[in-house]
Design a protein around this nucleic acid. Sequence first.
DNA 1: AAATCACCCTGCTCGC
DNA 2: TGCGAGCAGGGTGATT
Length: 299
Amino acid sequence: MPELPEVETVMRGLRAVLEGRRIARAATMREGLRWPFPEGLARRLTGATVLGFRRRGKYMLVRLDTGESLLIHLGMSGRMVARPLAGAAISWMGPNGVFSDARGHNQPPEAHEHLVMETEDGTRVGFVDPRRFGSVDLLPTAVEDAHKLLAGMGPEPLEDGFTVASLSGALAGKATPIKAALLDQRVVAGLGNIYVAEALFRARISPRRLAGTIPGARAVRLVPAVKAVLEEAIGAGGSSLRDYVRADGELGRFQDRFSVYDREGQPCPLCPGPGSGCAGVSRIVQSGRSTFYCARTQR
DNA sequence: AAATCACCCTGCTCGC
DNA sequence: TGCGAGCAGGGTGATT
């Protein structure tokens, strides 16, 4: 699910239910995900008040009044589930991760729910991640950007630091296909397989073209293409494929507007159709992952 | 150093 | 209907 637009959407959903709220309880259902959870995670979250949110690439940072920030990456299959506590605002953690509300009704965690937080005003927020490629950490707020996972990330594509000049500089001399280069979070932060495909289509650049040949006219097209596709996707609430995206359970809608992603064999939106020399959307495999593009318009 | 590759894990879809 | 193969939005660490 989660590339930049999906993470942004999830973060906005969490902001609505967590910002300014005190975490009355927290619990973990396993030792960790991709990596072990930080020591005492549930204890360190309990009692903290959420001051604010920030996104960096595909990471969410939840700033707490304890001087620490909660760092969350959703991996491939992670989602945040927020729902009102049943019956009353007070519940408690029982054996086997089962929560009970004030009337004694059980609220078992849903499948693959690994971390749960309850706010004082009665919302339960769970981190659900079947494949467990997600990650969670706690770090001092004052040095957020020095965290191992954040240091070295490229510019935020929707901020002023992402320019034709900065992108050209990052791509110059690279001997890897542009598809792979854009997936590299050190080049630009937050793009994944879907939005790389969509941005390259809009910029009419072949995913097979070597990154080092992009600086110039192609970079001039690529930068606004990246920004536009991400902004449109955020506006649509992200893309939902197999999983729900939003914390509120609503589906994103951008998947209905894909030009090439997951559209193998379907007509290219730019080409007039059969007879134009366009065979429709092609699918190839690059570094083990599917790439979708139009071989006629993308050069 | 830069670029590829195997791997982490579960669930779903497709073809037989 | 069951079963195995293949594939999936991610990133890391080891290896070339």
